[in-house]
Amino acid sequence: MQWILFDKDGTLIYFDQSWTRIGIQLVDDFIERYRASIADVEQAYKDLGVVDRDILPGSVMASGSLEEMIAHFNQIANRDVSDWVKEHSQTLIDQREPDNEWVDGVYEMLETLRQRGYKLAIVTSDTRKGTEQFLEATDSEHLFDVIISTEAHAVEKPNPEVLKPLFEQHEVQPEEIMMVGDTPNDIQTAINAQLGYSVAVLTGVGEKESFTQADRIVDDATAVLDILNDI
């Protein structure tokens, strides 16, 4: 392996509860706006994974892509609400005040990887603004060679095109890359892009049972050092 790609929220840092608040707010606003088209409001919340004012692990609101969320919203509203979901979710994200707490030992692991000559990248579904806030708050921009964020209307994980900036800027083969993330979409990105190795971590929203396609499932990202020694 030459490159290690890391998801951010739930992988490098503990899952940011502001994402939960945003997700619930998005569902609340959606149901309020399209209530006349929704047959069963209580069932709509359940279908989206919002129960008792929390988001259920493994649900579309917990770990689904924006496209998957939109598909659920469209089905529940029985109409195309794609533009509203994209624009409103972006507004909520822009207003977010993120938490940025490193997973224990991860910062030190990143420094060790750099010392050993590995190239490091962030591939996140967060926006450029949120990612820059993270880098500034944690003083960690120097650790990463490539930073890929996701803006509204752009491709996102698990679409392999999300990795286009990496391949355009650096001479690297897919089999020389490891992907580390906390959701099935992270692992599916590795599969779709034919990356060399995928590691699922349990510090985020993904459930262990959902990582059947990962090469390794570990408690947290610090295990990457041992995995690299093994392979």
Rank of each mutant, 00 (worst) to 15 (best):
E156S: 15
E156P: 12
E156C: 13
E156F: 02
K157W: 00
K157N: 02
P158W: 04
P158F: 04
N159Q: 12
N159M: 09
N159I: 09
N159W: 06
P160E: 09
P160Q: 11
P160H: 13
P160S: 11
E161F: 04
E161Q: 12
V162D: 00
V162Q: 05
V162A: 01
V162I: 14
L163H: 10
L163P: 07
K164E: 11
K164R: 14
K164Y: 04
P165V: 01
L166Y: 06
L166P: 08
F167C: 05
F167I: 03
E168T: 14
E168C: 09
Q169Y: 02
Q169T: 10
Q169C: 05
Q169M: 09
Q169L: 08
H170P: 00
H170E: 02
H170V: 05
E171R: 12
V172F: 00
V172N: 03
V172A: 09
V172R: 08
Q173K: 15
Q173W: 04
Q173A: 15
P174T: 04
P174W: 10
I177W: 05
I177H: 08
I177D: 01
I177F: 07
M178L: 13
M178Q: 03
M179K: 12
M179E: 08
V180Y: 02
V180M: 03
V180N: 04
V180E: 04
V180R: 03
V180P: 06
V180K: 04
G181K: 08
G181S: 10
G181W: 03
G181Y: 05
D182A: 07
T183S: 15
P184W: 12
P184T: 15
N185C: 06
N185F: 04
N185I: 11
N185L: 14
D186T: 13
D186L: 11
